[in-house]
Design a protein around this nucleic acid. Structure first.
Length: 819
RNA sequence: GGCUAGGUAGCUCAGCCGGUUAGAGCACAGUAUUAAUAAUCCUGGGGUCGGGAGUUAAAGUCUCCCCCUAGCUACCA
């Protein structure tokens, strides 16, 4: 007794399959007076049966039976209607005896072939209708015939039980109509015989991310099956195989020449309608050669790309050989079984090589709601709108900064794209805009042979640029695109909020001094080179900036496009790690100073007397004396001091370097964590001085113990884990008036701007000021009037165009341009 | 069902060959600064690192089980 969910396959039944080691019983159903075999374990589903005999599946093999339907009774001559066995039979459902229709199931086909049965019937058309062979249902759709078949079996007493079960069935995703499994003759590439070549080729590919090599792709290759390479459809590349209609001889045609030689017709168009009519005969052989009707699987063409794009081997032999395998490709994760695979199959089969050396696998882009992007749901902003609003550069930067470039999926967010405009493109553009504003005033042109920088910040940003090139180069060489943009962000931050901010006075200076020229030259050089570095990541803005900057130079050796430039390499001789470290320390000190001011509620315009940088690392900052001036200005202090004698201010804390010592000490780690944490100041000093210290019978080096610092309780200083500062926040009248002076300057500058004056316009200021401010103006006259480009200041009790309140003191004034 | 990845702040994500107090940006709140200004700085609140068990002197990080998401794949008469 067999069980099926597809009654329409029953007319095509050719065998019954049992499990060799499954126990079967010969059962008798007294109610129906019927006798049949059934798996013992399935008896639970069929109560009321009497067991007459027991046997194993293998004992049943070879038994013959009469087919349910007469249509293919003749197939008995070719071995049909016999019991076969296979391990795929289970006893989880059904009867343990499986109906075999080899045209409508992969397992059925395999099992029947393996049993040596030659019979093969497929009485269903490609449209899913029965052929004339099944005379009773000819022309009927198979699914429509199900009920008629069931009725016939019932009438003939051959139906034991009829149930309705629901199970999933494949549907066409386009037409939403049910699909059936049906055998069709196909052409195969015997990939299974060259697995070793595929695996060997894969060993030579650098995957990003690397887990794909052994993981998803590696597993796929290990289990590679033969490639069904033909398709039965109208459009596609004709498979170039001709078969003799009498002798069955086969010829695979390898070129137009070969085809012309055989057929006498030279084609220029290889579409089917031109190829299919061509036939040929061979001397001494009966019959006509005609092309097979199938076309190629389109994935065959994707895999042929390296050869087809160059029309190799018919042309471009040397070009092909020079470029194969390709250095680099990139595609989506879903191509593991698509393009990556077909490229590898063809390259391994043809040349025993991979088709590409490096591959970046992109993850799938999801909509912001975490679902797949869907045209129907419109759960995304159309790309053209996005590019219109933020630009293609911003989109590109956003995409390559994400996990997408290492096969991770990403929820796409428009705000992430906007963020790239804000954090990368705008500051970068603003830096250029800043340079242009000032160089235009001075009519400055870049020089092709700039002298080495002498200014310390020029040297610093130049060094930072080399470090950037070196880091970007390393990440690019390893195809880690996602690690590049963070480096660019850091650099742009240093350029705009470090270099330009600290150098503004040099650019504001009047006239064109050597120092100002050096500043221009440095900023110009950095921006110029940055535009080349950025070219692969922000191709449009970098090209635009490169052209704009090219126009600044007085010399004419410029490439017409940034994309034709050589990619810049780091110049190690310009790198100064000591300087980069010192500036990084300075930036920390500035942050700490601002925090202190904020805590004390003293704004930055009020000068303070003394800043003291404390700690051993203060020496590294002090070693570059020029930086003190920047500190003085950034924190508006009159004096900057360094004190490496930190004991009075801070306490040192020794902490074990866990990753290092954990390996060395193992279980004793906890014990030593306490010992090291409790080290005396003397011991820490010893460690710093001699490079080693002994604790608990073990000697530790400076790298094994990390010395950090913490503000000593009661000390009025502020610190992070690296450096500490003392900012003297005592205010005097003098200091307060110094603050007023800056407030006055600020007020006048705002008024200049509000009046629409140019940066370089000279002005006349009339003012009416409270007495405290009068004193300020007396003391700080030079500063206030020169800073605001005021050539004619005068007291005027009636002035009231602008009125400001400075710490409770009235300052009223007017500004006008001097003709 | 199988394989391969992923699940960390309200959101998007870093961190993970085990390591100190888990970070960034956005958003929110509060400051500061400003002749690059529709720019920028700083501070703050905010986390059961999907859940559970285990290994370890130490787990977001390693192991096992489970849940969820995605890609690929196989789909049982």
């Amino acid at each position: 007794m067999i069980w099926t969910t597809t009654p329409w396959t029953l007319p095509s039944n050719l065998a019954v399959c049992v499990g060799p080691d499954i126990e079967y019983v010969r059962a008798f159903d007294p109610a129906r007076n019927q006798r049949f075999y059934i798996a013992k374990e399935r008896l639970v589903a069929y109560p009321g049966l009497t067991i007459e005999a027991l046997c194993l599946g293998r004992d049943l093999v070879g038994r013959r039976y009469s087919p349910l339907f007469p249509y293919f009774a003749a197939e008995k001559q070719r071995g049909a209607f016999v019991v076969v066995m296979d391990d795929y039979v289970t006893t989880e459902s059904g009867t343990g005896l499986v109906h075999q229709a080899p045209a409508f199931g992969e397992d059925d086909h395999r099992v029947v072939k393996a049993a040596g049965i030659e019979a093969m019937v497929c009485p269903v058309t490609l449209e899913g209708r029965f052929t004339d062979e099944v005379s009773d249902y000819a022309g009927q759709h198979v699914k429509d015939a199900d009920s008629a078949i069931i009725r016939v079996l019932k009438d003939r007493g051959l139906l034991y039980r009829h149930d309705t079960i629901t199970h999933s069935y494949p549907f066409c995703y386009r037409s939403d109509t049910p699909l059936i499994y049906r055998a069709i003759p196909s052409w195969y590439v015997r990939v299974s015989s060259m697995r070793d070549k595929l695996i060997n080729a894969n060993q030579q590919i650098h995957w990003v991310p690397d887990h794909l090599q052994e993981g998803r792709f590696g597993n796929w290759l290990e289990n590679a099956i033969d490639w069904a390479i033909s398709r039965n459809r109208v459009w596609g590349t004709p498979i170039p195989i001709w078969i003799n209609d009498v002798t069955g001889g086969q010829r695979c045609i390898g070129s137009l020449d070969e085809l012309a030689a055989l057929t006498g017709t030279r084609l220029t168009d290889l579409h089917r309608e031109h190829v299919d009519p061509l036939t040929f005969t061979l001397p001494g052989e009966a019959g006509v050669y005609r092309r097979v009707p199938e076309v190629l699987d389109c994935w065959f063409e994707s895999g042929s790309m390296p050869y087809a794009q160059l029309h190799y081997p018919f042309e471009n032999r040397s070009l092909f050989e020079a470029g194969f395998p390709a250095e680099f490709i990139a595609e989506g994760l879903d191509q593991t079984r698509g393009w990556f695979y077909t490229l590898t199959v063809l390259a391994a089969a043809l040349y025993d090589k991979p088709a590409f050396r490096n591959v970046i696998v992109n993850g799938m882009v999801l909509a912001e709601d975490g679902k797949k992007m869907s045209k129907r749901l419109r759960n995304y902003t159309p790309p053209d709108e996005l590019m219109e609003q933020y630009g293609a550069d911003a989109l590109r930067l956003y995409l390559i900064t994400s996990g997408l470039v290492r096969a991770e999926e990403q929820r796409f967010s428009d705000s992430g794209v906007r963020d790239m405009v804000r954090r990368v493109l705008l500051p970068w553009y603003n830096a250029f805009s800043f340079l242009r504003t000032y160089t235009e005033i001075d009519g400055w042109k870049a020089s092709p042979t700039a002298a080495p920088a002498t200014n310390i910040l020029d040297q610093w940003i130049t060094s930072r640029l080399q470090t950037l090139k070196s880091n970007v180069g390393a990440e690019m060489a390893a195809y880690r695109l996602y690690a590049v943009v963070p480096q660019l962000l850091d650099f742009i931050e240093d350029l705009t909020n470090g270099y330009i901010r600290l150098n503004r006075p040099r650019f504001w200076e009047e006239g064109l001094s050597a120092d100002k020229e050096a500043a221009y030259q440095t900023l110009y050089g950095v921006l110029r080179e940055l535009s080349v570095i950025m070219a692969p990541f922000a191709p449009f803005l970098s090209d635009w900036l490169h052209r704009e900057l090219g126009a600044f130079s007085g010399f004419g050796d410029e490439q017409s496009s940034v994309h034709l430039c050589r990619y810049p390499l780091a110049d190690g001789t310009l790198q100064r790690p000591d300087l980069e470290e010192a500036v990084a320390l300075m930036q920390r000190v500035v942050l700490l100073g601002r925090q202190k001011r904020e805590a004390e509620k003293i704004n930055l315009r009020t000068p303070l007397a003394t800043l003291t940088v404390i700690g051993e690392r203060a020496a590294r900052l002090a070693s570059i004396p020029e930086l003190a001036e920047y500190l003085r200005r950034e924190l508006n202090v009159q004096d900057v001091r360094f004190d490496t004698n930190e004991a009075a201010w801070i306490e040192l804390i020794a902490k074990p370097n866990f990753p290092l010592l954990g390996k060395r000490l193992g279980k004793r780690m906890k014990e030593f964590q306490g010992l090291i944490g409790g080290l005396s100041l003397e011991a820490i000093r010893t460690l710093r001085a001699s490079g080693a210290v002994e604790v608990g019978g073990e000697s530790f080096s400076l790298v094994e113990i990390d010395v950090q610092q913490r503000t000593r309780a009661g000390a009025n200083i502020i610190s992070d884990s690296v450096i500490a500062v003392d900012l003297d926040c005592t205010l005097s009248d003098t200091l307060i008036r110094g603050g007023y002076a800056r407030e006055i300057v600020r007020s006048i500058q705002r008024a200049r701007k509000a009046s629409g004056l140019r940066v370089s316009d000279r002005i006349r200021v009339r003012y009416a000021a409270a007495s405290a401010l009068i004193q300020t103006l007396d003391e700080h006259a030079t500063y206030v009037w020169s800073e605001t480009l005021t050539v004619e200041p005068s007291a005027d009790p009636g002035a009231d165009r602008f009125v400001e309140d400075i710490d409770g003191h009235r300052f009223a004034f007017s500004v006008e341009k001097v003709a």
